[in-house]
Design a protein around this nucleic acid. Structure first.
Lengths: 107, 107
DNA sequence: TTGACACGCAACCTGTTGGTTGCCTAAATC
DNA sequence: GATTTAGGCAACCAACAGGTTGCGTGTCAA
């Protein structure tokens, strides 16, 4: 998968907001996703295009409407392959810190 | 913490590469981090500044050198607070898909 | 069939981002 | 003390990102 596209897609707060909205209710139309956002419809379309290119959103057309579905798989993969790597490092660092503090107490 | 700063910092492949380098060997100097990269020293400095602003890198000065240390805590927090949320959604979706396939077999 | 509605396409504008270069400062080395 | 070495500061620049507006297209409904 294209890690870079996913990270870049997630870098924008408006796009994360759109994902959050789909997270709450999946399968929304473009018009629904625009409601309450301080952006033009075209701006939202662009954001959704980027999310779709990163495979974070899938769409189907139903009549004149376009339904948007969240795809959390790339997010999961990022967590799995990239973030958990650093998480282990962090836990190791904490464990070493703990050991260091304990041996300090022994002295 | 500033979620946006962390996501934005992680959005650039060069910065992720720098984190990967610190992941392999922590506490490197600016000069060391520059080696083999197709960028000027100043460009690397800018990237490291952004990582430091996002609290992903901590630095200390030792003589005329500046040592850089990876801080994986914000990455962990992103995984914890944001990514795991979508991960659960994904697992739920998979589980529902499984149920749907099973009930389809019953018919 | 006519009008309203949901959306797509494309040009355009502006601020930000990622990079450069040139020069400066401070520390180590000779 | 002079020179090299590690890094900082600031101006500048091209490319891109995020937004706008105007207009076109297909679909539904009266």
């Amino acid at each position: 998968m294209d890690t870079d596209a996913v990270f870049k897609a997630l870098a924008d707060a408006n796009r994360r907001e759109l994902l959050d909205r789909l997270f709450v209710r999946n399968g929304q139309t473009l018009g629904e996703l625009c409601e309450g956002l301080d952006m033009s419809r075209q701006a939202v379309t662009k954001h959704l295009d980027i999310l779709e290119a990163a495979n974070l959103v899938a769409t189907i057309k139903r009549g004149r409407e376009k339904l948007h579905y969240l795809n959390a798989v790339p997010i999961h993969e990022i967590g799995e392959r990239w973030i958990s790597k650093y998480e282990r490092k962090r836990l190791k660092a904490l464990s070493e810190l703990k050991k260091a503090l304990e041996s300090e107490n022994d002295e």
